[in-house]
Amino acid sequence: MKETDIHDKFLHEENKKREVIAPDGSIIEIDPLQDYFCDARPQINEPFKIKVIEKFLNWARAESIWVLGFGTGCGSIEIPPLVTPRFDAFRYGVQMRATPRQSNAFIISGYLSVKTLKRVIRSYEQMQSPKYVIALGSCTINGGMYWDSYNTINRLDHYLPVDVYIAGCMPRPEALLAGFMKLKELIKAGKAEKANEYIENLDWYKANQKKIIRDWNMPDYNW
């Protein structure tokens, strides 16, 4: 079976093309995947041309990292200590946000099941660039504990561009903080441009994502 066929097989009823009758009686053909989503192919967001200003903006980005509060795996248990008195990541400009729109860092806290990966991709694409991904623990690097599981991915970098990896199973909050420090360093040096890398290699990433997410049910890129 071709991959598109597999995706068609799992296409939900409400996402199929259909005709609806408008209140005025006219018949409208709708393709929910096209019409209900923002699916324009994303564009690369160039850094600011003037170096000094870009440097200043990068400083601000580095000192104000808003993390999406999406606990994808075991590692999310170490997020509460991070933002509570013991480690108090607020001191370092790290804050949690509840919505992907306002976040610019995504902590993939460990293993990703296929089902979560789909949501992670959606959340990631809803984040605004420049955005950063911090991969936590063995699972994101090479599968970790679940290297032979049928439902978890082994290498995160095939599905999302990753800025910083933190070794550990699970990494302690201090290691996470060290990861944030590294991320800050990268941002300040202007090296954290992975969001553009994702857009450049969008087709490759999409092919990888679609290979394992059979129940795709969304447009290729959904903002």
Partner: peptide
């Protein structure tokens, strides 16, 4: 921090 957050928000490159 509120200042930095403000600058950061204005420095986001893409908008929907």
């Amino acid at each position: 921090q509120p200042y930095i957050d403000l600058i950061k928000n204005y420095a986001i490159r893409s908008q929907i």
